[in-house]
Amino acid sequence: MAYKFDFGAIVPHWQLLFDGVILTTELTVIGAVVGVGLGIMGAWARASRAPVISQIVGVYVELIRNTPFLVQLFFIFFGLPALGVKLTEFQAAVLAMIVNLGAYSTEIIRAGILAIPQGQIEAAQSLAMNRVQIFRYVVILPALKKIWPALSSQIVIVMLGSSVCSQIAAEELTFGANYIQALNFRAFEVYFVVTGLYLVMSILLRMGLKVLGNFLFERRRHV
């Protein structure tokens, strides 16, 4: 074959990839924190079985889980301005990630809440705790602990999914890659390197979430 690989052609553009990694990280951190927060509230609403709100959350979860992230992103970025909601690329990307992760984590966290033994809740009630206190002190931490591995995987999936945000010109890692290959026409080399970067990021993210899980859950065991 005549093609000569030239990975060196990427080196002059390292700044673009570096900025991309930073922005992907920002997207992921904001998306994960707010998305899981949304998921906790959604799961509470679902598990409490309050008639109307529980159903609304149920519809939201099914709508998001059964449509592609890319379409959700396009709808938010291109569709919402028709309703007068104008968002920058970054805002649209973050919002899409929050909405997406919110739905998945609602379902995951709900499973954790349902796995809390009823006796725990009855014991808390007998101590005259109100519903908020029960949720805050008795239910949520053990529930999160139970489903932490599943939640971590979902956060990694959302981080990887953020690569399609390049399609609305949010300047994350894949956008950087597209930009570089448009400059030097070394598409394969660029995407190969960026795939490696994503792999490293997903491994680091998984490790980080594991450490965070240990910090959040293990420490309190002896209190």
């Binding site: 990887l160 953020s162 690569s163 894949t174 598409a187 795939t195 994503y198 792999l199």
Partner: peptide, 24 residues
């Protein structure tokens, strides 16, 4: 498995799409 679960689907498609022409 780790490779395909740890990288974005978009990157996998890009590598196939831009990589295969390089081997003819």
């Amino acid at each position: 498995v780790e490779l395909f679960q740890g990288t974005p689907l978009l990157m996998q498609l890009f590598i196939v799409f831009f990589g295969l022409p390089l081997i003819g």
